[in-house]
Design a protein around this nucleic acid. Structure first.
Length: 422
RNA sequence: GUGGGUAUAGCUCAGUUGGUUAGAGCGCCAGGUUGUGGCCCUGGAGGCCAUGGGUUCAACUCCCAUUACUCACCCCA
């Protein structure tokens, strides 16, 4: 227990950190290219924010939140997702009076008390974007195009973009009623999950995988056919714009994001290679959310990418990242005088910005060379009494195995030059 | 929340129908004459065999429970 990370969490070890940094930097780069600026927020917020924002009836709020009371008696919750916090910050800091629209991106951990499986954790990482103030379908299309560009930049192929419109609160309520009416005489013969869903979230029934249920659903009314004119026009504009920039997508009438705040456009990027939790990215429009959270009526749209899933997908596609270079030089020493000299040299090298590893174990030359090799050092230099005496040493090129005699006075200049040309 | 699978060294795994000092490969450390890595050879360290019960003369091995890991349902990123 003591030596085990809590269930659903995982360490990101030095061997894998480069992949994370690579992905995070790529994301930030693409976001900035679209005019987004980074925002960093607290890991926990007032519980009420999520109850209101994410929605009281959602699974997330009902059974998945890490909620606790602090010593001042406040109820706080580890964020289960990113949007609510960003919305809170947007309102709190009056970002509505910034030049509009407001474009923000973030890189966060999120927390949900879930049973874990492949691609699903209790602490997980999300890269996300929120765009406030733009109601037009152009915003939807641009946000999606950002994602496409991001995935392209990582060389990820074959993610399916699924798109749907779940209408506005008014047309959705009307549709739900139609769906219930349609199912009224069939629900008795359908599976248990569907029976539960009919009251809680009737639309999810359309997503049921049970063969029997599917039969009953063949003639079911489709939400897209029943959304109001405004919503339909909006959706048509989104798909049309995607087509114009050549972004392939599929209409998936089954997509219903699990968070209450979504309206109109919802979308996800799905993989088939990474297990049953294949949604690498989920997002959508949330035009009512800012108002719900106490701000002025403001349209919004955003998405979140599951970084663990993204990395799984990259791995399944065999996508590597550029290797990080090892240290420029290893400074080995024999004896106390030499060690002292190395200390000074190492200090100077590092001050010049050169990555330098020196012996601090007092090991044999052979052991030191082995170590230098394992570190991937580009050069190695062993200093003993002779070198201290003559102020010269033999610089070994670890790739070719060749030696070059050099004066220690010129070592730094030499390495600086090598670094510039390498 | 509901199911299935798994649990032996840092990692990947052996371990006979229950039988006494628990093994390999990789990794780690040290050597293979004087002060130079990769290949090879030798040696060493490192396991309460997940934990707690039970059966038995005897349990890593069989049974039960717990915990953890894992996959799926559900839900979602």
């Amino acid at each position: 227990m003591l030596t085990q990370a809590p269930k659903g969490t995982h360490d990101i070890l030095p061997d894998e950190i480069d992949k994370w940094i690579f992905v995070e930097q790529k994301f930030a780069q693409i976001c900035r290219r679209f005019g987004y600026r980074e925002i960093r927020l607290p890991v926990f917020e007032h519980t009420e924010l999520f109850q209101r924002g994410v929605g009281d009836t959602t699974d997330i709020v009902q059974k998945e939140m890490y909620t606790f009371e602090d010593k001042g008696g406040r109820s706080l919750t580890l964020r289960p997702e990113g949007t609510a916090g960003v919305v809170r910050s947007y309102i709190e800091h009056g970002m509505a009076s910034l030049p509009q629209p407001t474009k923000l991106f973030y890189n966060i951990t999120a927390y949900r008390y879930e049973k874990m499986q492949k691609g699903r954790f209790r602490e997980f990482h999300q890269l996300g974007v929120e765009l406030f103030g733009a109601a037009d379908a152009s915003a939807d299309a641009e946000v999606i195009s950002l994602l496409v560009l991001f995935f392209d930049s990582l060389k990820i192929k074959n993610l399916t973009l699924n798109l749907n419109s779940i209408g506005c609160p008014e047309c959705r309520a009307a549709y739900n009623q139609k769906l219930k009416d349609f199912l009224a005489d069939k629900i008795g013969n359908m599976c248990e999950t569907c029976k539960e869903r009919i009251d809680r979230n009737p639309m999810r029934i359309l997503d049921c995988k049970d063969e029997g249920c599917r039969q009953h659903l063949k003639e079911a009314p489709v939400l897209l056919d029943h959304i109001c004119d405004d919503c339909r026009v909006h959706f048509e504009k989104v798909t049309q714009k995607l087509q114009e920039i050549g972004i392939h997508h599929e209409i998936d009438r089954g997509i219903v994001r699990g968070l209450d705040y979504y309206n109109r456009t919802v979308f996800e990027f799905v993989s088939r290679n990474i297990g049953s939790q294949g949604t690498v990215c989920g997002g959508g429009r949330y035009d009512g959310l800012i108002e719900t959270c106490g701000g002025a009526p403001t349209p919004g749209i955003g998405f979140a990418i599951g970084v663990e899933r993204l990395l799984l997908e990259m791995e399944s596609q065999g996508i590597g990242i550029p290797a990080q270079p090892g240290p420029v030089i290893y400074l080995g020493s024999i004896g106390e005088k030499a060690e002292k000299l190395c200390e000074r040299l190492a200090w100077e090298l590092r001050s010049e910005g050169i990555t330098c590893i020196k012996d601090i174990m007092g090991r044999s030359v052979k052991a030191q060379m082995k170590y230098a090799d394992k570190l991937g050092a580009r050069y190695a230099l062993i200093i003993g009494d002779n070198e201290v005496e003559s102020n010269k040493a033999s610089l070994k090129d670890m790739k070719t195995g060749e030696f070059k005699d050099i004066s220690l006075d010129t070592l730094i200049d030499r390495l600086v030059k090598i670094r510039e040309t390498d």
